[in-house]
Design a binder for these strands. Structure first.
Lengths: 165, 165
DNA sequence: ATCAATGCAAATAATTTGCAAAAAG
DNA sequence: CTTTTTGCAAATTATTTGCATTGAT
């Protein structure tokens, strides 16, 4: 059931693989399965660890060589939260325009969508002579709850869950 | 005159240096002068090159050790446009809430501000139980002009120039 | 004087790459 | 069979750090 959530994203990627004439290797299959059955952001190292549970022989190089394929397909997006390594977000297949809000207290990352913001971005871009291709909005904030009560109500929520504006 | 544009930002940083009990070395002075007299985004390596024009003995290590001071002051912001190295934006002193729009054709980066977007972000964040601390909005788009006519009207504009929503 | 800051060079760590062997189509 | 992909290990590259020395206060 959990694994079924992103099935269509996986299928889209399989189509991409086909369209590009790429080969469907055992290693790629493992990686694809993993990537499209999670909603968590992950790093190359995390993906490698997950993959090795299923197939201990999968190499770091293969993971690093598969990530650009995933991003090239547009179904996974590289995220740069000024950390030491890059993170990857598999939720763009389902929510191509989602944004991030990061709790600087509990460090969790939430996703949300806003048509209003999208519309404004389009208007502003147009006025500046651009056609929007993609956008990246990341809000950093603090949880009122935590500041007032010392406990963050978001603490137990599933990361990568999308709320609606 | 160009150097005077950001004088107050420089002064603010000097106050920060003082407040933190940091010492005002010759090398820091050179770096501070440079950073607050440009509106361009720059990398550590670029800053080092500029600094060495004024003082050939300035080391890479000093530049790398000064950058975190600049970002800690809030007057300069680290920018991660999925590139090989980090870039730094000195325009946050004057425009603390500005956003970026990147022309994927001519690769130039423009800055703009939007109170409407800021307001929306505040509302959405509040509804999600957050108080906004900072935000990062980056739009990637293509220049209609370039696509239609083969020439980008933005080509000669000064990068780092802020337009108003 | 005292302690922070510097320059140098070596260390770190994420990511990339060359190459011979394995496997997909 | 042919060509892509893999695993391994070595290379690359931005950034960081240890240490003896210099310099700001």
């Amino acid at each position: 059931m959990l694994a079924a959530v992103n099935t269509s994203a996986k299928d889209k990627f399989l189509q991409f693989v086909d369209r590009q004439g790429l080969r469907l290797t055992r290693q790629r299959m493992v990686i694809i399965d993993l990537v499209f059955s999670t909603r968590e952001h992950f790093s190359a190292e995390q993906l490698l660890a997950w993959a090795r549970v299923r197939d201990a022989s999968i190499s770091r190089a293969t993971v690093y060589r598969t990530l650009p394929l995933l991003t090239a397909s547009g179904l996974v997006r590289e995220m740069d939260f000024g950390q030491d390594c890059k993170y990857y977000d598999p939720n763009y297949a389902e929510h191509p325009h989602h944004n991030h809000i990061i709790c600087k207290d509990c460090q969790k990352i939430f996703e949300f969508e806003s048509d209003k913001i999208n519309r404004l971005e389009g208007e502003i871009s147009q006025r500046m002579g651009f056609v929007v291709d993609s956008h990246r909005l990341e809000i950093t904030g603090s949880c009122e709850e935590l500041r007032r009560m010392g406990i963050c109500k978001n603490k137990d929520e599933h990361p990568g869950q999308s709320r609606r504006d």
